[in-house]
Design a protein around this nucleic acid. Structure first.
Lengths: 209, 209
DNA sequence: GAAAATTCTGGCACTCGGTCTCGTTTGGTG
DNA sequence: CACCAAACGAGACCGAGTGCCAGAATTTTC
């Protein structure tokens, strides 16, 4: 994803401490719990100061969900680059799918660990909920710009949400099965989820007498 | 909404401090900003202890968005009570609409103040984002039970989100116009929003020559 | 390649939200 | 009136997050 060797020394170091922190955090949080692990303990283990931590991450929660943010960072970046054509929902689906297949090979392991962690810590759940909404806002703004629509257009908001929801459902299933079948399985699940969306509108309560 | 006089004295007192806190909070936060107002200052002004505050509200953010939570508490309660029939999206729309018209007359003022406040405080935005997601989860669980569907059914999640989104768009517009036209205007906006939902799926990028 | 200018880091004090404990008060009950 | 349960106030305590500054490391300049 990121070419390590071509960067200036300072940037390389920044990236290294970032990774060390994320790696250490995932281990500590998994072993002893998110809340039970203090920041002090984490930065001590990673051999950096608290100041450095907050220069790399905006909050304790953020370092725990790196794998999640990687997905959405790539996703919004792809949308920013691309020029939407045809059915917008398809554009979003394709962008997200391409991101999924292009992720770092090590991402699978980290993502699974992250999702499991989230299930155990309410603060993390709150963080990702809000993060996800932020992504949707970003997508809406991006599309509104490119399509010449209003920022408050309900259709854009709906489409942005459908996409994150499809991911969320697909990923939940994928993680539950220990990410068996690898990235291909995730992509298949994602496709299925998008396919199932239109049926939602027509869902009816089964005939009540 | 709540019959004050029929409650035991202790409950009445609890409710009174709750209201005092919410009222005081809305005033202080509006006048001096959410972050700039410390909890200490708030409880001092409301003449209760910090302990009492946290017995009434789970967090500083919660007291600022009372008006928002009232809506969704009533909404989920209505769904829990009712028995869904016909098109599920219509069921949700009707439930939410009925809640909107039934809210306390004083609610309008508080809601407008709350929404304005949220625009100024990132922490509040995060809080309501997460809160909203929680409501959706609750709705999904409720419907899954009543309809005999799986908790992870994508369709339910989509429907739950469409509903909160419709509200969110309608309310945004309503608040922007100072809640002019009163509750009827909000209800109209809500109806329009729900009507616009299906068109989302077919949204296309304008033909690129 | 040394010196100057920038940028990053560590350490520390500080604020503030939130939890916990415990002794006291207050409303419900027979 | 007496008893019990529940709510309250006070204060100690924890830990996340911020601001400040002196010093180290990196980059740039000559």
């Amino acid at each position: 994803m990121l070419d390590e060797r071509s960067l200036p020394l300072r940037e390389r170091k920044r990236l290294r401490t970032r990774r060390t922190l994320a790696e250490t955090a995932l281990r500590l949080f998994t072993d002893h719990g998110f809340e039970a692990t203090t920041l002090e303990r984490l930065v001590e283990e990673a051999e950096v100061s608290k100041s450095t931590f907050f220069r790399a991450f905006p909050a304790k929660e953020a370092v725990a969900v790196e794998a999640e943010t990687e997905v959405w960072t790539a996703y919004t970046a792809a949308l920013d680059r691309g020029r939407p054509e045809g059915v917008v929902l398809d554009v979003l689906r394709d962008a997200l799918t391409e991101v999924a297949v292009a992720l770092d090979p090590d991402w699978d392991r980290r993502y699974v660990a992250t999702r499991r962690l989230i299930l155990t810590a309410p603060a993390l759940l709150a963080y990702v909920d809000h993060y996800r909404t932020g992504v949707e806002r970003q997508v809406v703004a991006c599309l509104a710009g490119k399509l010449g629509l209003d920022d408050g257009d309900l259709r854009l908001q709906v489409l942005a949400e459908l996409t994150t929801t499809a991911w969320s459902v697909a990923a939940r299933d994928w993680v539950r099965n220990e990410a068996d079948g690898g990235r291909e399985r995730l992509v298949r699940r994602l496709r299925d989820a998008f396919r199932a969306v239109p049926a939602s509108l027509d869902l009816r309560a089964p005939g009540t007498g």
